[in-house]
Design a protein around this nucleic acid. Structure first.
Lengths: 200, 200, 200, 200
DNA sequence: GATGAATGAGTCTTCATTCAT
DNA sequence: GATGAATGAAGACTCATTCAT
């Protein structure tokens, strides 16, 4: 269709089309033809840039992960108290989820499902999860060092905290009408911070 | 193969076969032929008892839900302090998850993914989630009435708590080797209980 | 369902149900389950009385033929001039077609289609057609003997006449809204009678 | 099998294969696999050019109709008396039927059956029938204007005439051994022309 | 006689992938 | 690089028929 774009831009174009289609239909429900139509390229064109459907799925997810990680890292750099950073993070991430990620939430959920079943996907997921947990663990360790938090196991607590937010997104994805994700997240942070804070 | 079972037992037989197949391959990856093979029945036999593949999926999930709800209800009836009940619940549910539910975890995750995308599934999911949240909310209300807990919004806290456990299961499903689900759950309850307890 | 009817009545019950279903869906579109439902009997019950679906189709058609032949014979016995008999026949048969046969017209048409393709059906059809033509031929011969008609080949003319009416029913079946079958049939007889009448 | 034909030729190739199969087995008895085999294309290839079995059926019939209409139109253009044109038409059409259409007669008959039952097919059939009747009506009107024919209702007579020929084909399709279609058609035209001719 | 659960070959259709152009 | 026609295995589902009860 459009001729001679930079190959990376073509890939990007395909990834975006695929993401839109996957969000609408799920990885396995979506067909290559759907992606063809959404992308405006031809069947052969897709296969020139990606060698299989799984390849496209993987590319979509990688892109998704790195976008999320970038954002988190940025917030963690800010010069705030640990408690404050946690609040920020929550506010920011949930606001993102509600706004722009909304459309891609389905992909997110489906990826958990697929990852739990298939090795190659799981490995990619693990890398991401571990980075995420690592960041939280550092933050928590910092909190203990500060004496903002009481002594706790940093890694376990980090996992717990990650789980808390993934879980909230999960529930909200099922019932966005009744639930206010931002408000719930704030309640969760409040309880968490109260639960780990050092009584003086 | 086997002839003339009680119709309910046949349905049960099919549901179990289907659950096993779904756990292995996922709802959409699994074919009716897979279920045929696993169940030992014929294609037509399956369709005699269930009118479509979706019908089987739904039956598997309903069964799954009601089993879980039964167990939870049982624990909630026990004559314990609210904090103790919460600990019990966690210990019990996570132990279950690790042991018997293990095989069906994949189904669980995939159902979240599908539910976020398709109405009929979502509705079933909502009913379950609401029951679950409701139970937690009651427990928390009880905790406040007891003066075990400080004044908090019971429903929001219940959602938060549900999210915490669903989230933990989610993460653990991806990385069961490194994570100790029971231990993590206990850490989570500790923090939670500390976070909501009334200081005297 | 109902118990112990006379076997012939059971057969009749099945034939009627089948006729209704076939009219609605066609021989091949209709399933045995459709007939089961319409008849109120069970699957096994149907197969007790008829050994196959084709058997039921055949029975429906035989019944259909003999009903039509009876009616025609009756009219031919009446003490009228040949021209008058022809008019009567037409009036009667077309009125029947419009009224009661209406529902079964589809069967009629489909049977032609099947008969043109399959031996066993064709043979049954032939017997009926030949009887029909034979009757017309006799009538026409009578007309010549009477000197109502000019000398013509009785058999060929009979076939021609049969074709005329079958053809009218055919066209009308496709477009019953615009066509008035009775009127058309009268026009056809008029032209025919004028075409064969002896000028004196 | 063959690669890269002109798309229209491919469609034509499929239509011809399908027509052959339908003639042999009927629309509903024929399977897509039969057409695949007859056409030498693959399953996917068929579905690339036609989106469903019904689509193929429709294409076969459209082609069939237009071929027939072309031929008729040609004859009607000839500079002959109306009576002569009618004779020509009959001779030509019946000769065609006997020769080349022979193989496709079954399709013709089955289409009547299906058309009487299903809307989309009926509509296509109606268009064709109306064109056909229209042509005859014009011819008859011409005959009256010429004073070849006595005053009659042109449309009704046209329908009658159409019915006469469709009917003859119908009967002949059931019993081609005993009947001489050409001869019968001539007898029919004779009687018809005598029945409508103006006595001077 | 009658029931309805069970069978399994067969149906139409989809879809990831390939490849001649 | 790109196209889109072609492939064929696989999918969900149907249905005439059988047979234990």
């Amino acid at each position: 269709m459009n001729k001679r774009l930079d190959p990376d831009m073509r890939k990007q174009q395909i990834i975006e089309a695929a993401a839109a289609v996957f969000a609408r239909k799920g990885f396995y429900q979506a067909s290559m033809d759907d992606i063809v139509q959404e992308s405006g390229l031809s069947k052969g064109g897709l296969y020139w840039h990606f060698k299989s459907k799984d390849d496209i799925v993987t590319a979509v997810l990688d892109q998704f992960f790195s976008a999320e990680m970038d954002e988190i890292n940025e917030i963690l750099m800010a010069p705030l108290s640990v408690s404050e950073k946690l609040r920020q993070l929550v506010t920011q991430m949930m606001a993102d989820t509600v706004e722009e990620l909304n459309a891609y939430l389905n992909i997110w959920l489906e990826f958990y499902a697929v990852a739990a079943r298939e090795g190659s996907f799981r490995d990619r997921m693990l890398v991401y999860m571990q980075q995420f947990i690592e960041l939280f663990a550092l933050l928590i360790q910092q909190g203990m060092d500060n004496e903002e938090f009481r002594p706790i196991n940093a890694r376990e607590t980090a996992i717990t905290l990650t789980a808390q937010f993934e879980g909230l997104i999960l529930l909200w994805a099922i019932d966005p009408e009744t639930m206010n994700l931002l408000q719930l997240a704030e309640t969760a942070v409040d309880i968490f911070l109260e639960g780990v804070r050092k009584h003086t």
